[in-house]
Design a protein around this nucleic acid. Structure first.
Lengths: 216, 216, 216, 216
DNA sequence: AACTAATCGAGACGGTACGTCCTGTCTTTGA
DNA sequence: TCAAAGACAGGACGTACCGTCTCGATTAGTT
């Protein structure tokens, strides 16, 4: 609120983000270990009991921390979970240009399916459902969805640049279809036959390859 | 819908013993108008305030009914919402074989996007989240997802039969991609450019058409 | 209500009380066996689970009868219990003049302590508590308390007549003290040392005997 | 009553570990005003509408407090009422030895009759009725009955010491008879003729006086 | 033999209270 | 300042009764 250190960060007075050289804010600094413990506990609970059954109390308890300490860092359950996914859940997207866009896309999909799809679905469900507070939804998109979206899209663009996909290919659509198939499997409860990711990506390459629209 | 006996048989009140096809179950029959009012109120609230903010009390109130009357029909909030979507939300899937599978698939996608995608996402999020009670999730899949899934699949099969899709085409994958793209748009917050459904279906036709794998 | 047969009895159209010779009311007569089963079940439950935990449903169930059948006979839980105690619980007060008032009073107290004190206390507690419906309280007093009161009093009067108690003795007070001691033991949780009844009655005889006020 | 720490310690919130006699327990202390308001509201409602019709909600409402705040202090309706009677209902038993045991006993009876008999009867009825949870009954006896019992008994003992009652007098019986008469009047609905308490006590003095058993 | 009128079983209905749980805010003491 | 502990208002949950009601199916006596 009245924090000097600006910070685009999550919620009530995010951590002073280290790189700002200004003199530290007065008073006792926040316990970094607590912060970690909290997000980790949140992730564990999210996986174990699900978003709805995750309670601030139990997260605080599992983190060995008082409830107030959680609320000082995260304004909301939504904020907490969102931030936890973003922070401890995956900061590991390569940003060097890919040498094998198609293969990388496949790997990316598989990893996403395994690590994010489930919790993303429930968190998103909850956030979409919470009318009158779109901030958390926006936050989650910013923190979790967008980066991955951008990464996947960059792979598609690279493929286009290399001529594997037609210059007219609708990459947005491609992205939606291939990423959506991950979600839909969760939605419908279909079990993933091995190689699903490869086949999905292949289908896109087939339909959006350089010759796709020139068939007789 | 307006059938008096043989109700949707959600949770409490098992089916009337099957072998007596006609004789009404003993006791005072349920008030059909109340049943309607309840599911309709549930749907309205689901659309208005979302799954999380929907309360049994307010549904009962809006339906002009006591809370007990709701719980007599639906064991749960999950059960209520699930059944409401299934019942009053859409009993309108054509079951005659399609004359134009591709066009029908497009229309179906558009209708689904408009009428179900949002609430389905939040309901599914909530249900997937509710570990330790998969019954509601299974129910929702049975009541809402599966029928539509089957319908869409039948369109794809018809297309295959007509030779629009290759006999080797992976229809399951096709379904996942095209239906998933609907969800993913909600997930990522992307706004739908007009014609998205047509383009998505077209992409599948492109990649799984009869000649798709014989290209040079 | 619209019953011809008058009947001072309990509640909604009591049984036609047999001795009225008028032609039986039309329609199916009440099942006498059910009536018995109900009051007996009520008594059992009263003893087993107490007044508060006794439910109309469980009484009906134990009696092998539907709930409506209970409510047709008794307007109320209070009415049911009250009537049950009065009916099946004790119609066995001797009305011949006593040959040994003191001894009979002792026996009476012991029997009352054993068979009525407990349930009487809770029923009375509930009925006294139920402001705005004194009918049940009055009923219970009429049906259960008053007859026993009168009996005990008649014993005291007989004792007075025989000269065992002074003509000036305050029999009302005597009754209250000796009967009250039964209740108070339940209230305070004191366990009854054997001979309590004898000692209590003896104390009254001591204090209200023919010579009691003439002591030096 | 107005003691800040060391509360009546009804149910939740165990005593502050006894061995630290002073240091306040951690966390925000309970709102003393709320505590008062609650017990007072409970007493008022107990008097007004009776035990059965007293609801936690209405007590909370009348106390200007949320329901949770009531449940934080009292685990139960029984616990609440019991504690309310014990706390705000009477902390006014003299503990100095009496100079006039007989007169004091009379006054005590009259006060008890007026202030406690009614609610005691219904509360006790309810508690005795609630099998399978004797804790509340025990509590009520500890908090309300026992202290008064002890007081009355001390008066009797003082009288014995002074020679007004015989050394062999059965004080327990005396207590039961004189206190019981208070209850029995409520039970039987008899209205108290003035002087009842004096007459009851007098009867005991008569029968248990120093000469009572030596009469010819 | 049909009609009438009450009973019976079964269960729906409105209403009310219960006790539990969780959220997000607040008020303490102590570090 | 932060941290730990916990009180607080508010509100939903699902359960359990109560007393009333509406059904169809019985079961008598009456016409």
């Amino acid at each position: 609120m009245t924090v000097p250190g600006a910070s685009t960060a999550s919620a009530p007075s995010g951590p002073p983000s280290a790189e700002t050289p200004c003199s530290r804010p007065p008073g006792r600094p926040r316990d970094t270990r607590a912060s970690h413990a909290i997000t980790e506990a949140a992730l564990r609970q999210l996986a174990d009991v699900g978003y709805a059954n995750l309670s601030m109390e139990s997260v605080a308890g599992e983190a060995g921390v008082s409830r107030a300490t959680v609320y000082r860092r995260f304004r909301d359950k939504a904020d907490l979970v969102t931030a936890a996914i973003a922070a401890n859940g995956g900061g590991d997207l390569p940003d060097t240009p890919s040498a094998d866009p198609k293969g990388d896309l496949v790997s990316y999909l598989e990893e996403f399916d395994e690590r994010f799809a489930e919790s993303c679905l429930e968190v998103l469900g909850a956030l979409v459902g919470a009318r009158e507070e779109p901030h958390a939804l926006a936050l989650h998109r910013d923190r979790v969805i967008s980066p991955r979206n951008a990464y996947a899209r960059s792979l598609l663009e690279e493929a286009q640049r290399r001529g594997e996909l037609s210059p007219q290919a609708d990459l947005e659509l491609a992205l939606q279809m291939v990423a959506g198939s991950v979600f839909y499997r969760r939605v419908s409860g279909a079990d993933s036959s091995p190689g699903w990711a490869k086949r999905a990506v292949h289908a896109i390459w087939e339909s959006m390859g350089p010759l796709s629209s020139r068939r007789p």
